[in-house]
Amino acid sequence: MSTFLSAFAGLVAHLADLLQPLFHDSSAAAAIILFTALVRLLVHPLSRAAARGQRARAALQPKVAELRKRHAKDPKKLQQAVMALHAEEKVSPLSGCFPSLFQLPAFFLLYHLFSNPEIGGRANGLLTHQLFAAPLGERWADALGGDGILGAAGLVYLGLFVLVAGVATFNYRRMKLVMATNPMAVNAEGGEAVPGLASAAKFMPFMSFFTLFSVAVMPLAAALYMVTSTTWSAVERAVLYRWQLAPGAAGSAAGSTT
């Protein structure tokens, strides 16, 4: 693990050096945002594949509805029939999980990098870097214990809280609009072959609000990753899943994919 951390620390430090002429003391913070954007670019093909899979699942909703009527009194047979239908149509109900899973290693590396005072037996120099007045290795509690909520570091966190709240509100309103426009398209989001995923999909818009808690308790560097990734996801989903806002989306999803 220390070898990976050392290599990763070198990468972040190199990016910070490249960005220093533009961002000065906040160059490491800018490097983290750039790193997050690069990770999301690498994962973007998986996100597009997940969007295509969801649209394909939406196209199957009329057939799923027929299976529900046929096996209304036998949930086990209904689950088996839906899974067989997805297998026949080569549609995976879990494809939407892959983009998040492939991001986890990058996030954990960043979290550990800015949680350790030493890397490879040497002092972790990245902990001295800041986002404006807030050290990247510290947390909101440290800012509150310093100059308080309206101090220089506290205002950095307030800005992040406002951004996260804005993104979360955007996600919530968009999902409510999708549900009002086409409930079947939302139902397809979870995939009926896996019990509980459809309900979880409806709960997903609220997950962005939990990022507020993450920003408060994580090192600022890890919080920056989460804020950047969450904002990217909101924009990406608005583009890749724009078909959900069309009336009758679930019925017409068998057409061209995103």
Rank of each mutant, 00 (worst) to 15 (best):
L245Y: 02
S92W: 12
D25Y: 07
F213E: 07
L197R: 11
P45W: 13
G154S: 04
P45I: 02
P205A: 03
M175W: 07
N124G: 04
A234P: 08
A250M: 04
Y157L: 00
Q80F: 03
V239Q: 12
E138F: 15
G96Y: 02
R52Q: 15
P99K: 05
N124A: 06
A87Q: 15
L46A: 13
V91N: 12
A234T: 08
A165R: 14
R68P: 00
A165Y: 15
F210C: 08
L5W: 04
A165N: 14
A65S: 01
D142Q: 05
R55Q: 15
L85M: 07
F206R: 08
T231V: 08
R139H: 07
M218I: 12
R237L: 09
A134E: 01
G137W: 08
M175T: 08
H129Y: 02
R173M: 13
G145T: 04
P99F: 01
S252F: 13
A254R: 08
V164G: 11
R242P: 07
H44F: 15
P247A: 06
R173H: 05
L177V: 03
L136T: 06
P205Y: 03
T257G: 13
H71I: 08
L101S: 10
A72R: 15
A253R: 01
F132D: 12
R40C: 01
E88K: 15
Q79W: 01
T228D: 07
S95E: 14
L177Q: 13
P45H: 14
N116S: 15
A7H: 06
Y172Q: 10
K202Q: 14
S26Q: 13
L78Q: 05
A180F: 09
R173L: 15
N171Y: 03
T228P: 00
S92G: 12
Y111I: 11
M184C: 00
P135A: 08
A193S: 07
L158E: 02
I119V: 11
F102P: 03
